[in-house]
Computed example of a mutant assay.
Amino acid sequence: MTPDQRLLLVHAHPDDESINNGATMAKYVAEGRGVTLVTCTGGEMGEILVPELEHLEPHELAEHRRGELAAAMKALGVTDHRYLGGFGTFHDSGMQWHEQGHAVIGDEVGEQAFWNADLAEAATHLVEVIREVRPQVLVTYDQFGGYGHPDHIQAHRVAMYAAQLAAVPSYRRDLGEAWDIAKIYWTAMSESRMREGLRRLREAGDTVSYEGMDPDGPLPYFVVADEDLTAAIDAQEHVEAKMDAMRAHATQITTEGPFFALSNNVGSAAWGIEHYRIAKGTPGPAGPDGLETDLFAGL
């Protein structure tokens, strides 16, 4: 049976979904809502954090990360996860760091890189998923991809364009009946919570995690001012499922890294409350803090 409420998430690489939305995904699955994940690339160019796997070639890493993603989705309870156009259609574009502290495209980019994908072609693959799943809510990145990663930016473009095309009755009738997604959200990190987390890390004597970040100083590009946030999904009871999903992405996330340090020092609120900003639709009734407590609010 098809759940009455359905969420579609569009992410660039395996692990992005668990970091950004793992708690929300686990919460909605537990509540009987439909959760579909579309991953746009295999993550071929990811930095390998496991020494014994450093020998993996890009195509081998993509296959390995495919297994990691499956394990992460099992931890979250998500049974519907797909690759855009099928596994191997689009490859990780890679990135390099700009002097201003955000990611940019690298000097060499492969032909199959997601960054080089034809926008209409890639979006049409997603239109097919949208018309099949018929989600009321879509979640993806903002226009800068959070921190500038070219694949995150491309995932944003593909998701937003596909949402428009899917709603046009005369566009590709062969892909199914038109579907207009009611609400679209962009992932976000709350500025106040980030500052609080950094402050508590430093007070606990941790000067390594999120090195160079001052609780009272400039913050990374992915941090969003609280006044721009629309929703805060409290899924603290599912934070361990999120942590298990992140652990599953072992080639990309270490248990000794900043994500787990923040969770250990700040508690479940650090990763169990996930924030979003609305890009399409009308926000529903808000909670005491002025933010929606459910992405489906008002529908």
Results as ranks from 00 to 15, higher is better:
2 T>E: 11
4 D>F: 04
7 L>E: 08
10 V>G: 03
14 P>D: 02
15 D>K: 01
16 D>C: 00
19 I>K: 05
19 I>R: 04
22 G>N: 00
24 T>S: 09
26 A>V: 10
31 E>W: 03
34 G>Q: 04
36 T>K: 09
37 L>M: 07
38 V>A: 00
44 E>D: 12
48 I>E: 01
48 I>M: 05
48 I>C: 06
57 E>A: 13
60 E>F: 06
61 L>T: 11
67 G>I: 08
68 E>F: 07
70 A>E: 13
70 A>C: 12
72 A>D: 06
73 M>P: 07
73 M>A: 12
74 K>C: 08
74 K>S: 12
80 D>W: 08
80 D>H: 13
80 D>P: 14
82 R>S: 08
89 T>L: 00
93 S>Q: 01
99 E>C: 07
101 G>A: 07
105 I>S: 09
105 I>W: 02
108 E>I: 15
108 E>W: 12
110 G>R: 10
116 N>S: 09
120 A>W: 12
122 A>F: 01
125 H>R: 08
127 V>R: 02
132 E>F: 03
133 V>D: 08
134 R>K: 10
137 V>Y: 00
137 V>L: 03
141 Y>F: 13
143 Q>S: 09
144 F>V: 10
145 G>Q: 00
146 G>K: 04
148 G>L: 01
148 G>T: 01
148 G>M: 05
156 H>M: 02
163 A>Y: 01
170 S>V: 15
174 D>W: 10
175 L>D: 06
176 G>F: 01
177 E>C: 15
177 E>K: 04
179 W>C: 07
182 A>T: 12
183 K>R: 02
185 Y>N: 02
188 A>S: 05
188 A>V: 04
189 M>Y: 13
190 S>V: 06
191 E>P: 11
195 R>E: 03
196 E>V: 13
196 E>T: 14
199 R>K: 15
199 R>V: 07
200 R>E: 10
201 L>K: 02
205 G>C: 07
205 G>K: 02
206 D>C: 14
209 S>K: 05
213 M>R: 12
214 D>A: 05
215 P>Q: 03
218 P>R: 02
220 P>A: 10
220 P>F: 09
222 F>I: 01
223 V>F: 08
229 L>T: 09
231 A>T: 09
232 A>E: 08
232 A>P: 06
234 D>F: 14
239 V>P: 12
240 E>A: 09
243 M>P: 12
246 M>H: 13
250 A>K: 15
251 T>Q: 11
253 I>D: 03
254 T>K: 14
262 L>M: 15
263 S>P: 08
266 V>T: 14
273 I>F: 11
277 R>L: 08
280 K>L: 05
281 G>Y: 01
281 G>R: 03
281 G>I: 04
284 G>N: 05
287 G>R: 06
291 L>H: 08
296 F>T: 04
